[in-house]
Simulated assay, not measured.
Amino acid sequence: MKLSISTLGEFDIKSDGQSILKQSSRTYRLNKLFEYFITFRNKKLLPEMIIDNLLSESESDDPKNMLRTQIFRLRKIIKAFLPEGADESEYLMINFVNGYYCLEIGEKTEIDVDEFEALIHRGDMDMEHDPESAARLYQGAIKLYKGLYLSDNAYEVWLVPTRNYYQRLYLKTLRKLIELLKEKNENETVVALCEEALLVDPYEESIHINLMEAMLHQGQQKNALNHYEYSMKLLMRELDIKPSAMFTEMLNKIQNHVSKDNPADFNSINSELEDENLLGAMQCNIDSFKFLLNLQKRKSFRNDENDYLCIMNINDSNSRKSKELSEILRYSLRKGDVFTYWNQSQILMILHDVKDGGIDVVRDRIYSKIRNSSLIKERDVSFSFKPLMQEEPAVQH
């Protein structure tokens, strides 16, 4: 009989594939003590250190005696895991020698983190001369990672360094495996790998980026765009921070992605480049807006067109209203107009060839749709207009 201890994800101990930990009766403190010994296995631990980490909030007048009692009870639980008459030193044994406690792991006990690190080390050794073997070893390690180290014990400070170490090692190994798969153009495998990884770590940007890139290589532009929109909302909602420039740059890659494997013809060009919805004004990101703004300025040098740049200021900057507000602008402006979000409280617009009184018409139409929608109050919205080719006034000193 062998014991298998799982720590990557939920803590469990199995024998012959069956959990024996869940069948046992343990208090929260005993469970925490057990996890502490597993984390610092084969290391000498002073009683004072254990008390500081696990019993500092206890109201006991004699914390050392309390620790001794808990360790006595934990030893009985460990013994109950083992076959009758088994040598404890072959499995798990808590010793007390020269003032130190130590959980010693015997040859009949396996811990997933030890196998996890061993597979990665072997993969690193094979990387140069046998990348296929390295990929198999990395895949084996990644399958062992079911979540954060001792994920069911979320709030212990002493766990943070160990938990962060294994998470970093997992992500580093995942990146190495993805690079090996990319070299062989195994994009379908990369997609499946990233989708599984996101079940474990849904907030890691690099996994989302690799997933979208692999989708693009498979020609799945719509799937990549859908995933970008989903992951952007997820990261901003859960982490409350703006994603990195590398992440946001994926939108440009997705929007500008065109497969060049087949010769160009008008049908393929229309299929790849034309928007599905040509109704109303066009919404774009800030980089595309910059490009269109400069293009329109260049055209205005030759054509007699009255183009305007407009700033729409919104006092109520609730980001959850942006989708509804975009719909209002899309159908208040004309097909030749363009708009983008400068920030949560300002929207930029290019109004193409505005005739006499056209500015008032645009403003009134937007105000009318805002009133009808009850989305935001009319008094919370204001506009600034400037002819696209107007020279800026000189600064007076």
Rank of each mutant, 00 (worst) to 15 (best):
N252V: 01
Y341G: 01
L30A: 09
K176Q: 06
D152I: 03
K260S: 04
Q167Y: 09
S374Y: 15
P131G: 03
F301V: 00
N95F: 07
Q167D: 01
F72M: 02
N164C: 07
S25I: 07
Q221C: 03
Q221M: 04
K321Q: 12
S288F: 05
E327F: 13
I254G: 02
V354E: 01
E104T: 15
L181Y: 15
N318I: 03
E324L: 09
E249T: 14
R168H: 15
V97H: 15
M127A: 03
R163A: 11
L279P: 02
M212S: 12
S24R: 12
A192P: 01
R175T: 12
F81M: 10
S300I: 03
N164T: 09
A224S: 09
L295W: 09
F11P: 03
K44Q: 10
D240R: 05
Y170C: 13
N185F: 06
K233R: 15
M246S: 15
M215N: 14
H352W: 06
R163V: 06
T109Q: 02
K172W: 04
S56D: 05
D52P: 01
N31D: 11
L177F: 13
S268A: 06
W342Q: 10
T189Q: 13
I111E: 07
H121M: 08
N210K: 13
L177G: 08
N185H: 14
Y165A: 04
N164K: 15
K260N: 07
F11V: 07
K43C: 09
K64I: 00
H352D: 02
M125D: 12
Q283C: 11
L348K: 07
K2Q: 11
K233H: 13
S206Q: 11
K335F: 04
I120C: 08
L292W: 12
L348E: 04
I347Y: 09
N285W: 00
Q346H: 07
Y149D: 01
S332V: 03
S317W: 11
H217W: 06
Y165I: 01
A118H: 14
E128R: 11
K355V: 12
I370M: 06
L279V: 08
K377C: 01
S151W: 03
M349S: 12
